[in-house]
């Protein structure tokens, strides 16, 4: 088997999600595709559940060269590669079809390639749904309902500015402390996508989930530039083919998991609220006005808005 091992190129991929998560399953599918398309000459070794570090740390390991691939939230990429900041803007996409059209098109390619300046080559976007507010003891129907409430946000300036501008008090807090902080009322609520709301068991504490779908922050699959350049052209092709095959499969798995998560949290007594998104969208407009000081992002937003979809007005998931 030593002989065999020498012939097989093994890429180490680490990420922070647990093995029941749809994005993890998408990457397992990618691994199978890679083995198939390369005839067993290439495979992945996947390390889930933050075994090799947090998302930010894994990105550094790619730059250092001890890890080959990782999957992180686009939000974490913000402090590595500036163009990713555009994806954290609330209500950037008209709907899912628009989002996928942008990510699959030349603009998506441009954002993924921006990482190469930082020794991180983006391979694809994985769907991570939309993030919405969940509160411990009150529903959010309009931005006014957020007034003065302590909302846990990610360590991202864009996310903090968004909650601030909607009227809430953004409270940065490590994810590990969040469950008890919600339970004991250190914070009033948080925001995340349905599968994470479900798997984190925050629904045990937070009984109101308002699907305002403010940000559609995707996940990003990356490979260290040095590792990519070491691969033969043939190996690069195999890997890209496996990646491309995994994207639609992951979207299918995501939709399935999102549906199931919403069903399960409802079963656990969570009230799902479908608020009118317009007032939220209007409230965050100043974030876009402020972008005029940042020509690169401003231009990117204009081009994203200009992207047409084949089927405008397609229903949102």
């Amino acid at each position: 088997s030593c002989e065999e091992a020498r012939q097989t190129r093994v890429l180490k991929l680490a990420h922070g999600l647990d093995v029941t998560h749809p994005v993890h399953k998408g990457m397992v599918y990618m691994k199978q595709q890679l083995e198939q398309v390369s005839g067993g000459k290439m495979t992945l070794e996947i390390y889930p559940s933050q075994q090799l570090g947090s998302e930010r740390e894994a990105l550094e390991l790619l730059q250092i060269g001890s890890l080959d691939m990782t999957k992180v939230s686009a939000g974490v990429m913000e402090s590595f590669s500036p163009k990713f900041r555009v994806l954290g803007l609330p209500y950037l996409f008209r709907d899912r079809a628009h989002q996928f059209a942008v990510q699959d098109g030349p603009i998506g390619e441009e954002i993924l390639r921006d990482g190469e300046n930082y020794w991180l080559r983006g391979l694809c976007f994985y769907d991570a749904g939309s993030r919405s507010f969940y509160m411990k003891d009150r529903p959010i129907n309009t931005p006014a309902d957020l007034q003065g409430l302590k909302i846990r946000v990610m360590e991202s300036p864009t996310a903090q500015a968004m909650v601030s501008i909607m009227g809430g008090s953004p409270t940065p807090m490590s994810y590990g402390e969040l469950y008890t902080s919600l339970q004991q009322g250190v914070v009033d609520g948080a925001e995340n996508n349905p599968p994470s709301f479900y798997s984190s068991r925050h629904y045990e504490v937070c009984k109101y989930y308002s699907l305002d779908e403010h940000t559609a922050l995707p996940d990003v699959l990356l490979i260290g530039t040095k590792v990519w350049n070491k691969l033969s052209p043939e190996e690069q092709e195999w890997l890209q083919a496996a990646v491309d095959a995994s994207v639609p499969e992951e979207r299918r798995l995501w939709a399935e998991s999102e549906e199931e998560s919403l069903r399960e949290v409802q079963k656990a007594g969570v009230e799902i609220i479908y608020p009118d998104k317009k007032p939220f969208e209007e409230k965050v407009q100043p974030l876009y006005d402020a972008l005029k000081n940042d020509p690169t992002l401003y231009d990117l937003v204009q081009r994203i808005r200009a992207v047409e979809t084949d089927n405008p007005g397609s229903p949102q998931l």
Partner: peptide, 9 residues
Amino acid sequence: IVAGIFTAT
């Protein structure tokens, strides 16, 4: 901690 005034840390 139990009353939610501050976190364990």
